[in-house]
Design a binder for these strands. Structure first.
Lengths: 201, 201
DNA sequence: CCTCTAACGGACAGCGTTCTCCGTTTCGCT
DNA sequence: AGCGAAACGGAGAACGCTGTCCGTTAGAGG
C-alpha cells in the first residue's frame, strides 16, 4: 500500500467550510464573551450561524473554546506588547495592556483566574496560556525591579496578584463601566490609596 | 370579633422548631459558603438536617438565603468594627476586618459584587446590605482623609473598589491560600507596587 | 458532472439544580 | 392525653445547559 486510493488524498487540505466555520465560531465566542463569561454553548453556535454539533466538532468542550479564544486574545496582546519600548516602564505599560484586554473578553479573565487557583499545576487546558502570560510579565518585571521602579520586596507573584485584583473589579460590572473602573483600580494598585510617604518607608 | 378563638393565638409565638431550623440552615449555609459560592440549595438543607421544603419556607429563594447569611456576617463585622478606636487609622483597620470576613464567606463577596454592579439601584435584596457596608466605610473615610492619611484625590468609591479587588483575589483561590493572598493584595492596594516616591507626587 | 467522504445541523438524551406538592409529623395549648 | 394548626420532608416537576446521534448537505477531485 505505498499509494493511496484515488478519492482519498493522503493528507486532505482543510476544507474551506471548516476554516470558515472555525473563524465564525471564534468570532462569535469572542463577541459574546465580551459581555458575559457564562455564555451557553448553543448561543455561540447560533451567533456563528452553525449547528451545535459543528461547535463541538471544532472544540471538544466549553473549556477548549474558551482557551482558543483566550489564545487569540493573548496573541493580540503579545503583538501590542512588542511595540512597548523595553525598559523600566515596560511592565506598567504591559499591565495596562493586559487589563484593557481583560475588559474586552472574559476569556482572559478565565486565564487569570486559573493562574491564581492552580499556578503550577499543569494538565489544564489553560495552563499553557497561563505560562505565556506569566512569561510576558516576568520578562518586563526584572528590568523594572532592577531599575528601582518597583518596591524592592516585590515578586512576580505580586504582579499577578494585581491582575487578579483587576479581574475582581471587572467581572460583574456592566460593560460600559469596566474601562474606567479597571483603569482606576490599576492606578490604585500601582500607587496605593495611602498618602505618599515622605521617605522610603 | 374583639377576641380570638381559643386555638388561634392572635400573634403566635415563633415555634421552637422553626427557630431551631432557621439557625441550623443559616449555620449550614455559612459553613458551606465558606468554601464555595455556588452551593446547591439541597446541600444546605442536607447539611442542616432538614428537608428542602423547610429551607424554602424560611428563605423564598437562593438570594434570600445568601442575603440572610451576609446579614449575620455583617453584624459580626460591625461588632468587631466597634472595637476599632476612631481616628485616621480606623479605615485601614476596617478594611482588614472586612477582607478577613470576605475570606470566610462567599456571602460577603456577593454583597461586594452587588455593590460594584449596581451601586445605586435599590430593590435588590442585597441592596440594604450594600448600603450598610458603604456606611461603615464612609464613616471611617472622612476622618482618614481629613487627617491626610489618604491620597487627596480619593473618594469612597475608590475604597469600595479596593474591596472589589480583594474579591477578585479571593474567589477561585483554594481556601488555604486566601488569607495570605488577600492580605497581600490589600497591602498592595494600600501602598501600591511602585517604589515609594521621594516627594508628595 | 459525478461520486465519495467529510462536515453539517437540528433534535434529543442526560444531568444537575431550583423550587413545589402533599401526605405526615410535631408543636403548643387546654 | 387530646386536638387543631402550622411546619416538616421526600419525591418529583420544571428548567437550562452540555454534549451526542444520525439523516442530510456540500466540498473537492476525477
Amino acid at each position: 500500500m505505498p499509494h493511496v486510493s484515488p478519492t482519498t488524498p493522503a493528507s486532505a487540505a482543510v476544507r474551506s467550510d471548516v476554516q470558515r466555520n472555525r473563524r465564525a465560531l471564534l468570532d462569535a465566542a469572542r463577541q459574546l464573551l465580551a459581555v458575559r463569561g457564562d455564555v451557553p454553548m448553543y448561543e455561540v453556535a447560533r451567533r456563528a450561524g452553525v449547528g451545535q454539533a459543528t461547535l463541538y466538532r471544532h472544540f471538544p468542550d466549553r473549556r477548549a473554546l474558551i482557551a482558543a479564544v483566550a489564545e487569540e486574545v493573548l496573541d493580540a496582546v503579545e503583538e501590542e506588547a512588542a511595540a512597548i519600548p523595553p525598559g523600566p516602564g515596560a511592565l506598567e505599560a504591559l499591565l495596562r495592556l493586559i487589563v484593557a484586554s481583560m475588559v474586552r473578553t472574559h476569556a482572559l479573565l478565565q486565564v487569570v483566574e486559573d493562574e491564581s487557583s492552580n499556578p503550577r499545576e499543569p494538565g489544564t487546558l489553560l495552563h499553557g496560556l497561563v505560562q505565556r502570560l506569566l512569561g510576558m510579565v516576568a520578562e518586563r518585571f526584572a528590568p523594572a525591579k532592577a531599575a528601582g521602579v518597583l518596591r524592592q520586596d516585590l515578586t512576580v507573584d505580586d504582579v499577578m496578584l494585581v491582575l487578579g485584583m483587576a479581574k475582581g473589579v471587572i467581572e460583574g460590572l456592566p460593560a460600559d463601566e469596566r474601562d474606567a473602573a479597571s483603569a482606576r483600580a490599576l492606578e490604585l494598585a500601582l500607587h496605593g490609596i495611602l498618602a505618599p510617604r515622605r521617605r522610603g518607608g
